[in-house]
Simulated scan of single mutants.
Amino acid sequence: AYEYSWKRQNWFENSAAEHRAVRENVGMYDMASFGKIRVEGRDAEAFLNYVCGADMSVSVGKIVYTQFLNKRGGIEADVTVSRLSEAVYLVVTPAITRLADQTWLRRHLGDFNVVITDVTAGEAVLAGMGPNARALLQKVSPNDFSNAVNPFGTLQQIEIGMAQARVHRVSYVGELGWEVYISSEMAAHVFEALHEAGADMGLKLCGMHMMDSCRIEKGFRHFGHDITCEDHVLEAGLGFAVKVDKPAFIGRDAVLKKKETGLNARLLQFKLVDAEPLLYHNEPVLRDGEIVGYLSSGAYGHTLGAAVGLGYVPCKGESMAEVLASSYEIDVAGVLV
């Protein structure tokens, strides 16, 4: 049972071991809770290009990281979109935002000839992540998982054990890995096949605390904490995922305007110099002795050896170099670190 504390909880070392497994070997965890929204029809490409900030005119088998933006350039959703065929895409969302993301799609459907279907219950997802993730998959599948055949940001259909599956080479933990999508009725079999194959490799079963600590070390944003509908996509540091040179999409004018007028804030990553304190979120951020903001999220970076946090800092009229030249402290329960 969990024993909660502002200091190291009774699960701290367990999570640290899972974190190390993903960074140094291979770990597996359940992501079946992902929301899965199928978008299909003759206008699927045009519709998603209108709703998404990124370019959806990609080849079949490509996975695109993107955001749904509002007219202010705020982030309504943070998703991946996979092109399954010429007329079919799969939008993968965080579990808790599936209904909101599907509602956003339906709200902007207009005259596009598209069918939107929630297929979440139809597929389970097992994530295998870590430097030895490729070796694990090769033990249970005859398919080729090399960079040449299955580079980052692509998917392929495979055999695994006695099942058919689809593997997406993407990662929220910042390591080599695949998300394995299998029909729900074959999920237990595929889990058993992977678990058995990984026994002599030191495969470790992992949980969500591991995912949170790994993602924050890499500076990956968490929707609902680091990015929301009130946070501009450029100030969140996600401009690389927005393609303003494609046809008009929701939020394009706000992105172009922000590029012209400059940022009012930047999302920064902070690592404490003291290895002992923990960070959660909402801790005040001090710049040159003055409170300028707060942490939007925090977790312990077991590889980095200290707690890590993300938070917005005002920067109107300043260059990135000027922002980084300042001295920063985090107020942890009244102690400046």
Rank of each mutant, 00 (worst) to 15 (best):
K243L: 08
E45I: 01
L136A: 09
A199M: 05
V140K: 15
L278C: 13
I330F: 04
I158W: 04
G289P: 02
S59L: 00
Y50F: 14
G27Q: 12
D212I: 08
A275H: 06
A236S: 12
I160Y: 02
L99K: 14
R98F: 01
G301W: 13
G53S: 07
A165N: 13
N10S: 11
N150G: 06
L256N: 08
L205S: 04
V323I: 09
G202C: 12
C206E: 03
L84Q: 09
L176H: 01
P247F: 05
V285K: 04
V167R: 10
S319R: 10
R169P: 08
H281K: 15
G177I: 00
A87M: 11
A133C: 10
S57M: 01
V125C: 15
E123P: 01
F145M: 14
A100V: 09
K257E: 14
G202K: 14
G122I: 03
F249D: 03
V149T: 13
V308N: 00
D101R: 11
S59K: 02
G239H: 14
N264K: 10
A333D: 14
G311L: 07
G317T: 11
S319A: 03
V292H: 05
Q67K: 07
E159H: 07
L336H: 09
D111W: 06
T120E: 00
F152C: 03
F34M: 07
G153F: 08
E260Q: 15
A127C: 14
T303K: 14
Y29K: 11
H108I: 04
E329N: 03
G73R: 06
V190E: 01
V22K: 07
T303W: 13
H281C: 10
G41K: 03
F240C: 15
V51K: 07
R8T: 06
H302D: 15
A148H: 12
M56C: 05
F12G: 10
D30I: 11
T261P: 08
L69K: 12
R166G: 05
T261A: 10
F145W: 15
V308M: 05
F152T: 13
G317S: 12
E192M: 02
R72M: 11
G177C: 02
Y312H: 05
C52P: 09
D245K: 13
A275P: 15
Y280I: 11
Y294I: 00
K7V: 05
R98N: 07
I96G: 04
Q138F: 01
T97D: 13
V180F: 08
P247Y: 04
R38W: 01
I291H: 03
S146K: 13
S5K: 10
M186C: 05
V140I: 14
